[in-house]
């Protein structure tokens, strides 16, 4: 026994050393990856004039001045207005995408209708259309509807299943749900509305959570669409508000920028933490990378 234990000991030691090295390596890599975020956090609490000259994470003279300045510095508009605008647009985008994309996905996954494959291929094809191809035709359309400088161009399309990526994601998920469940419900007298609402949706919660999370993050971070469609400062969203802090044509407010950037991350992080488990389930079951 003693001889066997002695023979195993060097192996255990080398295994422990190996694991220690791996962990040290991983922690170091994680630190390097998260350094920009940590630096931004530290910079938010530094006096504005030190922001660009300090590269360490230590804040020698912490201050909340950047938060106060950043919140109030944009002319005639508090940064709170930008947050509220972003929240309204993102919440409606989540609602619209979850509702419309799940309905479209159910139709593609479970209904038989003429040209289904062609329509599905066309829908998938729109994923490959560069956004800039659509920008001007969309603007012409929304301008003719009198929707410019309102939230409508940013919200209404979300209720029309225009996000082909989410439709595709949900189609894939719905196809994984055994058809027997829907057939059993149909034998019990359920129509498509009840099958969708009472069987498919409850089973698709992880995929819907994934749709909701990505809708929120993409909508929250969207810069170009709000820039094009929202022209009054009172309608601006957080990304446009952040851009106003730094401009080549004048003195930039880096302290305010980092303080407000830090605040702008909180809803996204909060959304991720709240839906973390469902999000991971959704990603793992749909094969999303």
């Amino acid at each position: 026994m003693t001889a066997v234990a002695a023979r195993h000991r060097p192996h255990q030691v080398s295994h422990r050393v190996q694991r220690t090295f791996i962990h040290v390596g991983l922690v170091s890599a994680a630190f390097v990856m998260s350094y920009p975020l940590l630096w931004m956090t530290a910079s938010a609490f530094r006096p504005s004039e030190q922001v660009l000259v300090e590269d360490s994470l230590w804040v020698s003279t912490p201050t909340l001045e950047n938060f106060v300045n950043g919140w109030t510095s944009v002319a005639q508009t508090s940064f709170g207005t930008f947050f509220l605008n972003s929240l309204v647009i993102s919440a409606l985008a989540v609602l619209g995408n979850v509702l419309s994309c799940s309905l479209a996905a159910y139709a593609f996954a479970r209904l038989r209708f003429p040209g289904r494959r062609v329509w599905f291929a066309l829908m998938i094809g729109t994923i490959m259309l560069p956004y800039h191809v659509l920008l001007i035709p969309q603007y012409l359309l929304f301008n003719s509807l009198g929707w410019v400088d309102t939230f409508l161009p940013l919200v209404v399309p979300r209720f029309l299943a225009t996000e082909a990526f989410f439709v595709f994601l949900l189609v894939q998920f719905f196809r994984l749900i055994p058809k027997d469940l829907a057939e059993a419900a149909r034998i019990d007298g359920c129509g498509h509305a009840r099958i969708f609402g009472q069987i498919m949706v409850p089973l698709a919660v992880p995929a819907l959570a994934t749709t909701a999370a990505f809708s929120f993050i993409w909508s929250w971070n969207d810069f170009l669409n709000p820039l094009i469609y929202l022209t009054s400062q009172g309608n601006y969203t957080v990304p446009i508000g952040l851009a106003l802090f730094v401009d080549a044509s004048g003195t930039s407010n880096y302290g305010g920028l980092f303080a407000m950037s830090l605040l702008s991350l909180l809803p996204v992080i909060g959304f991720f933490l709240a839906f973390q488990r469902l999000l991971l389930d959704g990603i793992s079951t749909t094969g999303l990378k």
Binding site: I136, L224, L227, I228, Q233, I240, A243, V246, A248
Partner: peptide, 23 residues
Amino acid sequence: IETQPTTFDGHWDRLSVQASANN
């Protein structure tokens, strides 16, 4: 009076789209 202030780059991005719609 309706004002549309933005950043330098944002101004030109927005203006080019507005010009395309004669707006």
